[in-house]
Design a protein around this nucleic acid. Structure first.
Lengths: 141, 141
DNA sequence: ACTCTTAATTAGAACAATTCTAATGTGTTG
DNA sequence: CAACACATTAGAATTGTTCTAATTAAGAGT
């Protein structure tokens, strides 16, 4: 058995989402969803794909990230006005953000409780509540 | 008494912050700090200044917003990767963000309590905790 | 398999927000 | 009021992202 990862699960995800499993989407999907939760920027994923020998244009990386987000395979995290992060963890959770390095870490949504939130103003409803814990310094380990 | 606003308080703020009270900084300071809490983008403040007959370049608006932020006269709010908002309310508080219109509203920091936050990872400490309540729909009123 | 149709990919141009540059102007200090 | 340091400026440059129009590839039907 070689250590090449199965592509079937990603294939299935794409099909479910109504997205054609093209070579590019499969490759990006496997980079994203194989092995744990990840936080990526378009630029970083593009480079990673290149390094992995997958030829995919930056435009496609952007398209794909947005399509995956629309299909709830990813979620967008706004923490830094300079770049957009995408999170492979789409469950309810929050984030640590290491400002110095631009590194994101998940905080389990069930751990945190928020009390005293005012009601949504008339005519609106909650779309989502984001908690971002900004960290100074650098984690070691 | 004419209704022209006093410039002395802004002057004092600038001095305290170690910023020379130049014509531009005074004008922007008065636009920002006269009359209640505000959320502005650089572009919006620039236009507002023009309309008020204050000639100030966009570069200066950016410089000034950053200097004011460094001096804790303003605080930056990251809610939208497209543009940067600056908030004249520097006390501890959180935000409603109306995604459709890009409108921000303060939520008093004392109203909200967050429990169950994990400790900061080793080597880091909390710089700030931001709560952003994203709203769908449009507030009326 | 072959063809048709429709959707996906692409390179590069275009874009928007922001920052930089280097020349000019202005506050402040002595 | 001279001199210096700091501010301001227009416009160019940069960055992240989106758009465009042309090419390629996927899926359905034969």
């Amino acid at each position: 058995m070689k250590e090449d990862r199965p592509f079937a699960p990603t294939m299935a995800r794409l099909r479910e989402a109504g997205l054609r499993p093209t070579r590019q989407r499969l490759a990006l999907g496997r980079l994203l969803f194989d092995g744990g939760d990840r936080h990526v920027t378009a630029e970083a994923l593009h480079e990673e794909a290149q390094r992995a020998g997958v030829s995919v244009s930056l435009a496609t990386v952007y398209n794909t990230l947005h399509q995956f987000t629309a299909a709830s395979l990813l979620r967008e995290v706004v923490v830094d006005s300079a770049r957009t992060y995408f999170d492979t963890n789409v469950s309810d959770h929050h984030h640590f953000f290491v400002e110095k390095s631009g590194h994101l870490m998940d905080i389990d949504g069930e751990k945190i409780a928020i009390t005293g939130l005012p009601e949504a103003p008339e005519g609106t409803s909650f779309a989502r509540v984001d908690v971002i814990v900004r960290l100074q310094g650098e984690p070691r380990g």
